[in-house]
Design a protein around this nucleic acid. Sequence first.
DNA 1: CATTATGATCGATATTTTCGATTAATTGGC
DNA 2: GCCAATTAATCGAAAATATCGATCATAATG
Lengths: 279, 279
Amino acid sequence: MTLEQLRIFIAVAEREHMTDAARALNLTQSATSAAIAALEERHDVRLFDRVGRGIALTALGRDFLPEARAVVARAEDAVAFLAASAGLQRGQVRLVASQTVANYWLPPLMQGFHEVYPGIELHLKIMNTHDAGQAITEGAADLGFVEDEVSSPAFTLLPAAEDQLVVVSATPVTDLAAAKWVMRERGSGTRAVLEQALDRVGIVPDVRMELPSNEAVRAAVIAGSGVSALSRLVVKVPLAAGQLVEIDVPIPPRRFYALRPDQRHVSRAAQAFLDYVLK
Amino acid sequence: MTLEQLRIFIAVAEREHMTDAARALNLTQSATSAAIAALEERHDVRLFDRVGRGIALTALGRDFLPEARAVVARAEDAVAFLAASAGLQRGQVRLVASQTVANYWLPPLMQGFHEVYPGIELHLKIMNTHDAGQAITEGAADLGFVEDEVSSPAFTLLPAAEDQLVVVSATPVTDLAAAKWVMRERGSGTRAVLEQALDRVGIVPDVRMELPSNEAVRAAVIAGSGVSALSRLVVKVPLAAGQLVEIDVPIPPRRFYALRPDQRHVSRAAQAFLDYVLK
DNA sequence: CATTATGATCGATATTTTCGATTAATTGGC
DNA sequence: GCCAATTAATCGAAAATATCGATCATAATG
């Protein structure tokens, strides 16, 4: 039993006329006749009576018509499913990102993407840069977004948005060298960039507190525990609200990077997201 | 999209291994590879990642697997439907029969047939011999059963059971020539056979009542309206109960006949019923 | 680094489908 | 009642498709 045979059967059964059906199917009458004969012979049934110079459905043929229609309809659903995927009407993208990116940069982009492609599900997991690279390498995620340069033969690093760290404090600070510092944990991208910048201006920071998240650092700084540097994305609101003040320390801008697997295929949905994020 | 492609896809997806799947499908690896490639190219999607020296389902491939299974399952249902019909597990037979046959002879046979083939529906319509022949000719019925010989190029008359008419009365009758007769309507098989038999023994019947059914005639005779001749099948019970007495008049046995269409195909179910009825 | 396993590819072959033409049967018009 | 038109089946040829066998490139394995 072939889908093509079923389609031909349906066309012939609906018309009870081979030649008309053949015309409608863009087939020759002989091809149509052969297809029906093959269907009948293969399953050892008679679907049409050869009555006079025409044909007529047998009782079985009449009963089989809805069956045939159901099979073809189900197949067309499957085709539509694939077409929807190819047309980006559906799909899913598994994202991994490091903290700052995941919490402050990606969400509005994900929202914007979702408005353009409402059928594509986005799943985001937060992990550090190393684990994100691992996830891409293993195929556990489709795209990664990190705030450090990282290199591997398994993926390509694509520069994405620029980020600016700003030094903040609850109150104005005059002598930065004497300040107490609150910092992210060692190994975080934010910490690395900050230390590098302080080194360049000759400050050896007095680290009072080491906290594992941007939010914790921000809360500590607002509470007066010391000064720190955080992505502008993180402190935008408290700066505007006057809870924090910006201290002018020149920190070079850093980049966010997208991680795109080299070995594995990047699905159409993932590519669309990447294109959207990289503008 | 071909059912064969879907079957191959399912086999490969379940194993995530082309060569194994090819073995299981009794295909060569190249044929399997080509089928997957055709499916992917035709619908412009990627169902497998070529990872390392193996393959792995893409997210889409994973989502498509149940779709593919559903299509194949639906197709297998349709195949099973045809197989059931070919195996007489299902079907329907439209029967037409004249009164006596339909009311007294066929029912036990239909019951017996139904016990052997419980999946085959039997539909019986009562009509006179002429209309029954017409129904067969037009294809409105699959088989006919009548109590008169009737001829047409559209069907063949097959002798079935023998029937015996018996002359009955409520009370013993000595002078049959003087008796009052109750008869079926002109045109009925029973009436024709009876008149012929009476003619042979030189009796011109005094017809008092003409009734349109065996049951009406039987009731009239039991009520004492006169004598009549009815199929033994019709009077078996009242004879045994003593409501009627049998009067010895030699009436040649008559036959019931099956009508089988010549032009149209006789379905397997109809043929099975015919075989059953003709023993 | 050699070996083994895997999927893709290629040319050749087999199979299937489709075509074009013909035939047989049947209908409908004259 | 005969003839033209219509229809489905059939047959051989051609085309399209599927499959095979062999080979290649790649990547795990030891």
